[in-house]
Design a binder for these strands. Structure first.
Lengths: 204, 204
DNA sequence: GTCACGATGTTCACGCCGTCCACATCTAAG
DNA sequence: CTTAGATGTGGACGGCGTGAACATCGTGAC
């Protein structure tokens, strides 16, 4: 993808650094983002990166933010359109979809997911915003309240239970014992975990 | 703790490496375990470590296994003795205790926890056994079946839902947005997440 | 008791990494 | 045309993991 250039100035090195960072981390995760290798692939000296990012960590954060955006986009695209007519059922399906999308992205793009949510020192976005995938979760929960499926007084804090479950599952599916289980089985277990936590937050 | 030695041979370098590794990772997590620094603290040359571990990763794994053992021990000690008489209630309280112990260790010893369960390339123990904290979870779930609280056909696979929730919560509490929330609030949210997933696996 | 050998620790060296500093080159505003 | 700011280069430093050759120790065979 990145081709060596001829001119002294690159033109848009900042974008090139992020793009190459995406390439490298996709297969190798956060550890694969090395300043020297990124600049080497672009055909620029290592120190050129310092004109655009304060240090290695800052570049990592920028690439991570980009991955979070892509992840949210992927989750939106994978949102299944339910044929259910009832408002409540649709809201539940939506939350379910968000969870499955989260785990799905983690399983399909483990390198990127590790970068986005397991990078050392937290998931601090340069822009200070909430990670977009988390926004989708919030919206789905709000819709659940709107549909009167989730009691309003149980709404607050519900995001932590949901996020914990899908995030933890993603970890198990990537690093943990589920690492090299067949895709089908992992998907089934994900569905089950998600359905169970939803049942839990809705109350019995 | 580690004091420079006078003799040419250390005596028990292997144990010293693990002990110093525990010291370093306690505050700094997996990244703080550097071969050169460990050996420097012990007062031995960097390459001496290679007589006892194949490489840096192997030492990391050995320290991680030790941490997992300590974590299970801590979880056992924090098991609250319920005053509930009924068998079912006791079994539920036991599962709850396992979950709270898991999260509690993660919050109290984030460096060690990250080493034990977030180290790159999985949680592969040198001995090939299941991580001890996970054994406790299995036992608690079995007891739940024994007490007829959890239907036998719902037992299989239930560990993934439970583990996902507590593990994901631990991540959020260490790296994520709950990172610098007051201890009290984190504990409350942990209790809630655990209660909800338990309600979920038991079914409504 | 001596001697040889395996286990353990040292020394030197290599190539990688992130990062600092001084300098070169380009571009745009006056 | 000039000049200042933005952008990229070159060289250097210290830290890292690790390989190869060498040094030192304890121990069992004779």
């Amino acid at each position: 993808m990145p081709e060596p250039r001829d001119r002294y100035h690159h033109g848009d090195l900042r974008a090139a650094l992020i793009a190459t960072g995406l390439d490298l981390t996709r297969t190798g995760g956060p550890d694969a983002l090395r300043l020297r290798e990124v600049t080497r692939l672009i055909g620029v000296s290592p120190n050129a990166a310092y004109r655009h990012f304060a240090n290695h960590q800052a570049l990592l954060a920028a690439v991570a933010a980009e991955v979070q955006d892509r992840m949210a986009q992927s989750m939106r695209e994978h949102t299944v359109t339910t044929d259910a007519q009832e408002l409540g059922a649709r809201a539940v399906a939506r939350l379910r979809g968000v969870g499955l999308g989260y785990v799905g992205f983690a399983v399909d793009e483990p390198g990127w997911f590790r970068l986005a949510f397991f990078a050392p020192e937290g998931v601090d976005r340069p822009d200070g915003l909430m990670p977009p995938p988390l926004s989708l979760l919030h919206e789905a929960l709000d819709a659940l309240v709107e549909a009167s499926v989730l009691a309003r007084e149980r709404r607050k804090g519900a995001e932590w239970s949901c996020w914990s479950t899908v995030h933890g599952f993603a970890e198990l599916a990537i690093h943990g014992p589920l690492r090299d289980q067949p895709r089908q089985r992992v998907h089934g277990l994900a569905e089950r975990a998600i359905d169970e936590i939803i049942a839990g937050i809705l109350g019995s």
